[in-house]
Design a binder for these strands. Structure first.
Length: 494
RNA sequence: GGUCUCGUGGCCGAGUGGCUAGGCAGCGGUCUGCAAAACCGUGUACAGCGGUUCGAAUCCGCUCGAGACCUCCA
């Protein structure tokens, strides 16, 4: 009973207009969505988790609504400069020299790690995951087109985009709200930029210094593509001149996405993207987390608890839930307290999901408003993917489930089926949460536990509470919690 | 300096003009041999000042505070 997009009015906040707009795809039921992927030269960190979980949510929801989504998320393995001075070198090349590795070895290592981390977070793989290094030809072609149309110029083996000329006919600043006059007064003069006509012009092809390892031949000499080319070229190649959604972190809005619009508009004759979506940052003590700020926390650190700022390890699902508890356009502040709250909340939700599978219906039970909960979840998602509202609704359902379990309420068959559907759709398909139960599937362990529980049960029957409490305490020290319920004792690993 | 965003109860975080967001923590109760879990109840929250309005956390102005972008960054 999955819903169809024809029945839903989906609102998406468009960074271009700074408003929520009704989402109308170019060619329904097909949707093209491009999201800026990671630069694979370092550990995947908490900050990376946010856009990929966010757009995973978007991908999952659009798919649920029956759209055929082609989701493209690139791997940046060339092209980003250490700084934009001419002697700047490719980040990946630099790392490679430091570690005496082949650049592609570094790329491979961190790409694999990135995939592992995303898998742990239950982030679905995109439809296409193109590498920038595999699309050098396409990028060179696009540079040629821009040159042919007269919106770029060659200087000292590099090709620069002529922002001022572009701005005469188009608006360089549509997305970021910047004005070219402000850019003139605010752009820093950096050493080695003498070959640019204007400091705010950006490279679409860079000449490679002799020491630069990552280099490709081009009509302008050996070099590598400029910062923003890969997304323009690969977006166009796989999604066409114009596609529906482009996503990424807010920090990419300027200059990355602004420049992408300019390049693509010239090369293809039309604005590339209809809906621009930007997720906000994760902050740590109120400050943006970032490698350059020295407060980055890798996902491996989080999962292992091995970091000075961490009181304990947090599971991947806890991180996912933590991210989904905030709307994607808000900043999300990290703290141990907040993560521990998320951890407990998630456990409550998933325990209820398990309880739900064992509930039985009662004939003629009163209506409990399950249909309304379902509708509220759709309303929340339709309002710019408001996952915290979905979660709030789900907790109302949790209370209902637990109260049925306790015998304080009851559900008729229809509503029981509906609430199961609610969990299937929203907890598992849309929010993408999965149970992380460990140990329970181990037959030997479970057999042992049943034996122990039975022995303790006999002690309790004799009112030998000293013995029963010793058993419980010692298991507790091993991280096993016993819960005495009406229908016997259950156990779980903490 | 320029552009922009934000400031919600102990913590995280929804909410854009009138109706209990939610989670975590706390407090009281039910259940339990005791716990745990669950359930029930429980909070004079909207940075400050002024304005608009019958009515503002929500709109406008000012003040204070925080952050982002302007350089690679999710």
């Amino acid at each position: 009973m999955n819903p169809s997009f024809q029945e839903q009015k989906l609102l998406i906040y468009n960074s271009l207009t700074r408003k929520k707009e009704t989402f109308v795809p170019l060619k329904a039921p097909h949707i093209g969505m491009y999201v800026c992927g990671p630069t694979v030269y370092g550990d995947t960190h908490l900050g990376h988790a946010r856009p990929f979980v966010t757009f995973d949510l978007v991908f999952r929801y659009l798919t649920l609504l029956g759209y055929k989504v082609r989701y493209v998320r690139n791997i940046t393995d060339v092209g980003h400069l250490e700084n934009d001075a001419d002697e700047g070198e490719d980040k990946i090349a630099k790392k490679a020299r430091v570690e005496a590795l082949e650049p592609m070895e570094v790329v491979q290592f961190y790409t694999v790690q990135f995939h592992q981390m995303m898998d742990k977070l239950n982030v679905k793989r995109p439809s296409i995951e193109p590498h920038a290094s595999g699309h050098i030809i396409e990028q060179i072609e696009m540079v040629k087109q821009i040159l042919d149309k007269g919106f770029a110029y060659e200087a000292e083996g590099s090709v620069y985009f002529d922002v001022e000329k572009y701005n005469r006919e188009h608006d360089y600043g549509v997305l970021s709200g910047r004005k070219i006059e402000d850019l003139i007064s605010n752009t820093r003069e950096l050493a080695g930029q003498s070959s640019k006509r204007n400091p705010f012009d950006f490279a679409i092809w860079k000449n490679a210094e002799p020491a630069h390892i990552m280099r490709w031949p081009s009509p302008w000499g050996n070099g590598f593509p400029g910062w923003h080319m890969e997304c323009s070229a690969m977006g166009c190649k796989y999604l066409g001149d114009q596609f529906d959604i482009h996503g990424g972190g807010m920090d990419l809005l300027f200059p990355h996405h602004e420049s992408e619009i300019a390049q693509s508009t010239i090369a293809n004759g039309k604005a590339p993207v209809r809906y621009w979506m930007h997720n906000n940052m994760i902050t740590i003590n109120g400050q943006k987390m970032g490698k350059s700020l020295g407060n980055a926390m890798s996902l491996m650190d989080l999962f292992s608890g091995n970091h000075p700022l961490l009181e304990k390890a947090y599971s991947p699902m806890t991180i996912r839930f933590f991210i989904l508890q905030a709307q994607y356009r808000s900043t999300l502040d990290f703290s141990n307290e907040a993560l521990q709250a998320a951890e407990k909340g998630l456990k409550k939700l998933l325990t209820a999901a398990e309880t739900l599978s064992k509930l039985t219906a009662k004939k003629d039970a009163q209506e409990q408003g399950v249909a309304k909960m379902m509708q509220s979840c759709f309303d929340a998602m339709n309002d710019d993917f408001n996952s915290p509202m979905v979660i709030a609704q789900l907790f109302d359902a949790v209370r209902l489930i637990n109260s049925v379990q306790d015998g304080h309420s009851s559900l008729n068959q229809q509503e029981l089926d509906q609430i199961k559907e609610l969990f299937r759709i929203f907890v598992f398909e849309v929010l993408g949460l999965v149970s992380e139960e460990s140990g329970a599937e181990n037959d030997i362990l479970d057999g042992l536990m049943q034996t122990i529980i039975q022995l303790r049960q006999e002690a309790r029957a004799r009112k030998d509470y000293a013995t029963s409490d010793v058993i419980r305490d010692q298991l507790g020290a091993l991280g096993i919690v016993l819960k005495d319920g009406k229908e016997g004792t259950s156990w779980e690993q903490k």
